[in-house]
């Protein structure tokens, strides 16, 4: 099976930073990355997380009313 990376994208940078704050507090591992072009053509931040944390990430967003524009999985790019 090919490995995948998981991303959450936002309507604007502030929502992304709000989610970052929550993830940090909850000690959920994440990385801020430039939005991959396969997901969206608009540049800006998105947050990459681990698959096993997906539930927790969704919950953190829901709990604090943080707007997200979608969750995406992409095949890991081969180097």
């Amino acid at each position: 099976m090919e490995e995948q990376d998981y991303y959450v994208i936002f309507p604007n940078v502030n929502e992304g930073l709000k989610l970052e704050k929550q993830l940090k507090e909850k000690k959920i591992k994440y990385t801020i990355v430039p939005t991959p072009r396969e997901i969206s053509k608009c540049c800006g931040i998105c947050i990459k997380y681990l698959f096993e944390d997906e539930g927790a990430v969704k919950q953190a967003a829901a709990e604090h009313g943080i707007q997200v524009s979608g969750f995406h999985a992409l095949h890991k790019r081969k180097k």
């Binding site: 940078v13 930073l17 970052e20 994440y30 939005t35 800006g44």
Partner: peptide, 14 residues
């Protein structure tokens, strides 16, 4: 380094 990831991601944005 997440902060600098953020700055680069928003380099032409924020």
């Amino acid at each position: 380094m997440n902060y600098y990831n953020f700055v680069i991601s928003e380099v032409h944005g924020l």
